[in-house]
Amino acid sequence: MKLTLGAANAAFMSVTREQVAKIASLARIKVDEGDLDHFVPEFNAILGFVEQLGEVDTSSVEPMTAVIPQKLRLRDDVIDADPLTGGGKQAEVLANAPVAEHGFFGVPKVIE
């Protein structure tokens, strides 16, 4: 989807090329140098759109957290009550790991 809404408001809040690079790095998404210039106006268009939403007076409107009225359900404190969300799945949990040894995931050494 191409966002063009609120381009006029983009001046209120905008990102720099460096900020886009940092956000990509924090999210572990590789963005080539050449693509950064392309992302800056896209980010700004999104921010402008969100700022435009701020023009609506919502001071008397309850925040909506779900489109259908429902409440958060809680679970009972019972181990492995539902096999789908319980433990005892070592083999399955490790199945996709590039390296698994002695029941552990093996990852490149990370040490402080």
């Binding site: 009550a81 005892g88 949990v93």
Partner: peptide
């Protein structure tokens, strides 16, 4: 102090076999 984890049914017991108390939610 609880039997199961905050968001899954896997046990919280200390000292178990590695990755034996990991649910698909936790993973």
């Amino acid at each position: 102090t609880s039997n199961a984890k905050l968001f899954s049914g896997a046990s919280t017991q200390f000292g178990a076999e590695p990755n034996s108390q990991v649910s698909l939610v936790d993973a």
